[in-house]
């Protein structure tokens, strides 16, 4: 198996306007690697939703993207409040985002469902008061 390629990004939790910059960067990197546009789109949408979540709920975090022979892995790690009920959070329309977030076009309770929709696998590891790590895979 050949070496995997890794990209790491810090997601700034203070600035909503800059949310999504890491996803834009990943999109560029994946394009340079010559990966199929459909795959890139799935990765970037899932990561973008995750990034927005980290900014809205967790005060930012770290995003890591690994590219190997089989596909692309996205790991989003934050030290936010954690998700109390993951099953509930996965339901379309369920949101704990404050109203001001809705006026910004997010917080409709579609973030996690969209992340699941576009990836082949999603693992959510969350502890209330400690943080959340989301690992997603998109296979080639």
């Amino acid at each position: 198996m050949s070496d995997s390629l890794n990209f790491s990004y810090l997601v700034d939790g203070e600035n909503f306007a800059s949310a999504g910059q890491a996803s834009v960067q990943v999109k560029k990197e994946l394009r340079q690697l010559g990966i199929a546009p459909e795959t890139i789109r799935r990765v970037s949408i899932a990561m973008y939703e995750g990034e927005i979540n980290m900014v809205i709920h967790a005060g930012g975090g770290v995003a890591q993207v690994n590219v190997d022979d089989l596909g692309i892995e996205i790991i989003l790690k934050d030290e936010g409040p954690g998700i109390a009920n993951i099953e509930q959070a996965m339901q379309e329309g369920f949101s704990t985002a404050p109203d001001n977030v809705r006026s910004l076009g997010f917080g409709a309770g579609m973030g996690l469902p969209n992340m699941k929709r576009y990836t082949d696998d999603i693992q959510i590891d969350s502890t209330v008061g400690v943080g959340t790590t989301i690992t997603m895979r998109v296979n080639f």
């Binding site: 999504g20 997010f106 409709a108």
Partner: peptide, 30 residues
């Protein structure tokens, strides 16, 4: 609502919106 836009992929699409912030453009780009 940008997450509603992100839920359904369409090819060569146009987005009509009354929302006004940079995330509209990022959503379109994604």
């Amino acid at each position: 609502m940008m997450s509603d836009v992100l839920a359904f992929v369409k090819d060569q699409a146009v987005l009509l919106t009354g929302l006004m912030n940079t995330q509209v453009i990022r959503t379109a780009e994604m």
